[in-house]
Simulated assay, not measured.
Amino acid sequence: MARIAHLSDIHFGANDPKIVSATEAWLTERQPDLVIISGDFTQRAKVEQFKQASVWLNRLRGAGHRVLSVPGNHDIPLYDVFRRFGAPLDRYKRYIDNDLCPWFEDDEVAIQGLNTARSLTIKDGRINHDQMRMLRERFADVRPEKTRILVTHHPLFAMPIGKGGELSEAVGQHDDAVKAVCEAGIHIALAGHFHRTYAEAADRMVANAGGALVIQAGTATSTRLRNAEPQSFNWLHVRHHNEIELQVVVWDGASFQRGHHVEYRRANMMWTAREMADAPVPGKAVAEKGAAG
């Protein structure tokens, strides 16, 4: 079984230091097999914000954590036009990771990170055809029993982003990207960006989407909250590519507590969900489940 902590939208420059410290303490106590961070390390891609993020990452690595990360749209300078279009992710590569599309593989999982952040858009994401080709090629030789995981900052599909049922924009090149994900045999698609937790079967979000389970993370440490959802991150137990536990770890104002805990199983080409016994504490935010739940 692979134990994965999935954090997103750290936003140094608009974050709570107390919550940052609490994430470290929680991870050090649980010792996941891998920490995944799906973008937006900074608020405005400033040097000082990247330095703070780098110090935090170095502390995680110094505590023995393996980390896989991808950049987010906030990791590209917004107001520095020269840098935005001339060297958009140079600071990310200097302070966070030189590899914008990192790969991780062990005996149980194979994980591909893809950079969806682009200079030409302020907030939306995009996957290009070179990345789609890499996705197919890297998973081509992965043994079928391994769980295949894709990590992006922007979700591949249009996501519910408000209480009224409104949907976000899907990533650019959406149809081709979904086709590449299907051909790569992705089992789990992890993303962030919208500061809200969500889980749904991909084929219930868009036609011909394959068998992936789409899992969104909220913001782990940002003070800029949306829909009154508190800071949180995801704790995954990947037992098999057809059997995944998702627990949302939620900030209650003083510490991180166990929130919504759901077991997802896939059989006969369909994902079903079962609530686990340790239900969330009443009054605290939980993961929103779509039709998969």
Rank of each mutant, 00 (worst) to 15 (best):
residue 5 A to V: 15
residue 8 S to N: 09
residue 9 D to S: 13
residue 12 F to Y: 13
residue 14 A to K: 01
residue 16 D to G: 05
residue 25 A to K: 08
residue 37 I to W: 07
residue 38 S to D: 03
residue 39 G to H: 09
residue 44 R to Y: 10
residue 45 A to N: 06
residue 46 K to C: 11
residue 46 K to T: 14
residue 48 E to I: 11
residue 51 K to Q: 15
residue 58 N to M: 05
residue 58 N to R: 09
residue 61 R to S: 13
residue 61 R to M: 14
residue 62 G to K: 09
residue 64 G to T: 14
residue 65 H to W: 12
residue 66 R to P: 00
residue 77 P to V: 15
residue 78 L to I: 15
residue 83 R to W: 10
residue 85 F to W: 14
residue 85 F to A: 06
residue 90 D to W: 00
residue 91 R to W: 02
residue 93 K to V: 15
residue 95 Y to P: 01
residue 108 E to T: 15
residue 110 A to E: 01
residue 113 G to T: 09
residue 115 N to Q: 11
residue 121 T to V: 11
residue 122 I to E: 05
residue 129 H to L: 08
residue 134 M to C: 07
residue 135 L to M: 14
residue 136 R to F: 11
residue 137 E to P: 09
residue 138 R to L: 05
residue 139 F to A: 12
residue 147 T to P: 04
residue 148 R to I: 15
residue 148 R to Q: 11
residue 156 L to E: 12
residue 162 G to E: 05
residue 167 L to E: 11
residue 168 S to H: 01
residue 171 V to L: 07
residue 174 H to Q: 12
residue 184 A to N: 02
residue 186 I to T: 14
residue 191 A to W: 00
residue 195 H to S: 02
residue 199 A to M: 03
residue 200 E to V: 11
residue 201 A to N: 10
residue 201 A to K: 04
residue 204 R to G: 07
residue 206 V to W: 08
residue 210 G to K: 09
residue 222 S to W: 02
residue 222 S to I: 11
residue 223 T to R: 03
residue 226 R to F: 08
residue 230 P to S: 14
residue 231 Q to M: 06
residue 232 S to N: 12
residue 233 F to P: 02
residue 239 R to S: 10
residue 240 H to K: 08
residue 240 H to N: 08
residue 241 H to V: 01
residue 243 E to P: 00
residue 245 E to C: 03
residue 246 L to Y: 03
residue 257 Q to Y: 07
residue 258 R to E: 14
residue 259 G to P: 08
residue 261 H to Q: 12
residue 264 Y to N: 05
residue 268 N to L: 05
residue 268 N to D: 03
residue 268 N to M: 06
residue 268 N to V: 06
residue 269 M to P: 00
residue 284 K to T: 04
residue 287 A to I: 01
residue 290 G to E: 14
residue 291 A to L: 09
residue 292 A to Y: 08
